[in-house]
Amino acid sequence: MSGERIAIEKHRRGNRWMHWINFPLLAVMIYSGMRIYWADLRDPYVFGIFGWEIFTFWPGWVNDGLNLERKLARGMAYHFTFGWLFLINGLAFAVYLIRTGGWRNFMPSIGDLKNIPGVLLHDIGRRDEAPPQGKYNIVQQLTYAAVLFMGLLAIISGFAIYKPTQLALLTGLMGGYESARTIHWLVTVGFLGFFLIHILQVARSGFGNFWSMVTGYEYLPETDMGHDKTDGGSGPDTGGDAGTDTDKEVLV
């Protein structure tokens, strides 16, 4: 079948599978973790400033709405069973990133740090031009690198809580049992915060970008179909030489 080449692979198969497998696994881990957390409401984590309680984790409507109450045994059963699947998927992803070299896409470089304000201004629509970037911009790189690190931290702090006597050294490394619990909980809140921003940014970036995480492929920027980006005013995607270089690189 001949024809013009109109789409190029953006996300490799392994990246896509492990990304989408991770989503329900992490959801089960967070949900079952919240059921465990519910059991100790005598001493909840509270977000506050200068002694003002601003937000107690969690408000009653969250506990009611998500059916968290009196599900400790079931929560533990899910958490300690699915934890292995989360760990295996995470390890497989780490190996995959190393073997394909894909980890470099997530690595922030010192030289790009100066672009952070430019990226953020572009993201909130206060600047037309986005700074030059690779697959991901510097803010994406910092965020994704942080999320990968949070995954690691969730696993380490999780084991520290799970076996604080057998793995006393690990628990000590986390600053003790209560400290490990706090870290584990902060990582969870971090994941929830990331999830919200991730969804928002994916929604803003247009369907083509989202769909590339499903099919693996996105339209080449120089084809007509490529102009499905919704961030209006950012100008032509392919400004001269850089675009041509990309073509050579990928089409040879």
Partner: peptide, 30 residues
């Protein structure tokens, strides 16, 4: 906006017909 080659780029490309077929299969898989 300049784009550097991606660290794990395969360079694999598809024609429109292939991309449509792939989209259908991915949708069903999803």
């Amino acid at each position: 906006m300049s784009r550097e080659p991606e660290a794990d780029a395969t360079g694999r490309t598809l024609t429109e017909a292939q991309f449509k077929k792939r989209s259908r299969r991915s949708l069903l898989t999803g």
